[in-house]
Amino acid sequence: MTLGATYSVLCSTAHKVDAATGEHGDLLDVIRESLGLVDFRDVADEARSFLSMPQQTPRPVELNTRAPRAVVSSAEAARRLVAMSRPICRTLVETYLRARGIMAFHETGSLSFHPRCYYRPDEDGPTETWPAMIAAVTDLNGKHTGAHRTWLDPNGFNETCLGRAPIDTPRRAMGELLGHAVRFGVGCDVMTAGEGIETMLSQRTVVPAMPAIAALSAGHLSAILFPDTLRRLYIARDNDPAGNGAMATLMERASSAGIEAIVLTPQLGDFNEDLRLLGPDALRATLRVQIAPQDVARFMVLSA
């Protein structure tokens, strides 16, 4: 057996640290005998060279050093942000949603309000504070994995910003988002999925009993994870190229999982535009003809 082969056999049973410190003597003995080395330092250096370990050099003792600051993950930072926010009732968040025509405030525990949420235009820019709608992103088991921030204009709604703060990027997400979503209602065998929070709350304004999730973007919509109980999925698409792509991908994934997928299409750009500009009656009529008859009776309040 060659020296390299012998090394490989021994490495399969020895930890790198053990080999370098002499606690696993077999490897060091092979090196000593094969290379004719006498000094232990030479033997250890050869072992480290083979194992690609860095040379150990003495470090100067540092007095009064502080422990390194713990790195907070984006998911943990998101959980902290959600925890320090408060319910939306009688806050600027409720005012904002009502200004966008939304009246569905049941089962909105995933939403909260932060009066002074940090915003930084870029890495080098100064930190600003704006009021914000905070949305908790959760997995299928209800674990918080991320958060979505919508910074709001304290001066109220206008058609230019639609109630969002007049800043470059009034919406940002943080944490682990892929596969997860902002959830409204308790999941069952039927649910609807779309991109934006306002889009899904607009739909729930006229289909109040159907569970819904907001994936926050077209890319994340196409990658949502399906509950084991899901049998029929409504896809609330946005009328744009990204929405078309997400719809096609999600329909293919649902079909492969044995889930019936039905596309819901707004008359305008998205369902919040339908709600704001056409009104709730028009939105209700649009959805009623696209939803399966048994789900109309089950989830839509016909007398509304």
Rank of each mutant, 00 (worst) to 15 (best):
residue 270 D to I: 04
residue 257 A to L: 11
residue 251 M to D: 10
residue 255 S to F: 07
residue 263 V to E: 05
residue 243 G to H: 12
residue 240 D to T: 07
residue 303 S to A: 05
residue 264 L to N: 14
residue 273 E to P: 07
residue 250 L to Y: 13
residue 268 L to M: 08
residue 273 E to L: 15
residue 246 A to Y: 07
residue 276 R to P: 13
residue 263 V to L: 04
residue 273 E to S: 12
residue 283 L to E: 08
residue 293 P to K: 06
residue 247 M to F: 13
residue 298 R to I: 02
residue 259 I to A: 05
residue 253 R to V: 04
residue 258 G to D: 14
residue 278 L to C: 13
residue 289 V to K: 08
residue 240 D to L: 04
residue 254 A to K: 00
residue 245 G to L: 11
residue 231 R to P: 01
residue 261 A to F: 12
residue 238 D to I: 00
residue 299 F to M: 02
residue 249 T to V: 12
residue 234 Y to M: 11
residue 290 Q to F: 00
residue 279 G to N: 10
residue 275 L to K: 02
residue 290 Q to I: 00
residue 270 D to T: 08
residue 269 G to V: 11
residue 247 M to H: 13
residue 292 A to F: 05
residue 238 D to M: 02
residue 267 Q to M: 07
residue 304 A to Y: 13
residue 253 R to H: 04
residue 234 Y to R: 01
residue 240 D to P: 09
residue 268 L to D: 09
residue 304 A to G: 09
residue 280 P to D: 10
residue 233 L to G: 03
residue 265 T to G: 06
residue 297 A to K: 04
residue 283 L to Y: 01
residue 302 L to W: 07
residue 242 A to G: 07
residue 265 T to Y: 01
residue 269 G to I: 06
residue 302 L to P: 08
residue 279 G to Y: 09
residue 300 M to E: 07
residue 301 V to Q: 15
residue 230 L to A: 05
residue 277 L to T: 06
residue 286 T to D: 13
residue 293 P to Q: 01
residue 245 G to I: 06
residue 238 D to A: 04
residue 270 D to C: 13
residue 295 D to K: 00
residue 283 L to A: 03
residue 240 D to N: 06
residue 241 P to Y: 01
residue 246 A to P: 08
residue 281 D to Q: 10
residue 298 R to G: 02
residue 304 A to Q: 15
residue 231 R to W: 03
residue 288 R to A: 11
residue 300 M to N: 08
residue 251 M to V: 14
residue 296 V to A: 06
residue 243 G to I: 12
residue 255 S to E: 14
residue 298 R to P: 03
residue 243 G to S: 06
residue 285 A to Y: 04
residue 264 L to D: 05
residue 291 I to R: 01
residue 260 E to T: 13
residue 241 P to L: 03
residue 244 N to P: 01
residue 259 I to R: 00
residue 280 P to L: 05
residue 249 T to L: 11
residue 301 V to I: 07
residue 282 A to K: 11
residue 263 V to N: 00
residue 248 A to K: 09
residue 262 I to A: 14
residue 281 D to K: 12
residue 286 T to M: 15
residue 237 R to S: 08
residue 262 I to G: 07
residue 292 A to T: 10
residue 239 N to I: 00
residue 266 P to T: 04
residue 249 T to I: 14
residue 265 T to H: 05
residue 252 E to H: 14
residue 258 G to P: 07
residue 283 L to C: 10
residue 251 M to F: 10
residue 239 N to R: 09
residue 289 V to Y: 09
residue 266 P to C: 09
residue 267 Q to D: 10
residue 245 G to S: 08
residue 297 A to P: 10
residue 304 A to T: 03
residue 263 V to M: 08
residue 294 Q to R: 15
residue 287 L to D: 03
residue 284 R to Q: 06
residue 294 Q to P: 02
residue 249 T to A: 15
residue 289 V to H: 14
residue 234 Y to N: 08
residue 252 E to C: 14
residue 236 A to M: 05
residue 262 I to P: 04
residue 271 F to Y: 09
residue 243 G to E: 14
residue 263 V to K: 05
residue 262 I to M: 13
residue 229 T to A: 15
residue 272 N to Y: 08
residue 254 A to L: 04
residue 280 P to A: 14
residue 240 D to H: 02
residue 283 L to F: 05
residue 277 L to M: 11
residue 256 S to Q: 07
residue 299 F to A: 02
residue 281 D to M: 09
residue 245 G to Q: 09
residue 290 Q to R: 00
residue 229 T to C: 13
residue 291 I to F: 02
residue 274 D to P: 12
residue 269 G to R: 13
residue 276 R to N: 11
residue 262 I to V: 15
residue 270 D to V: 03
residue 284 R to L: 11
residue 242 A to P: 05
residue 241 P to V: 13
residue 229 T to L: 14
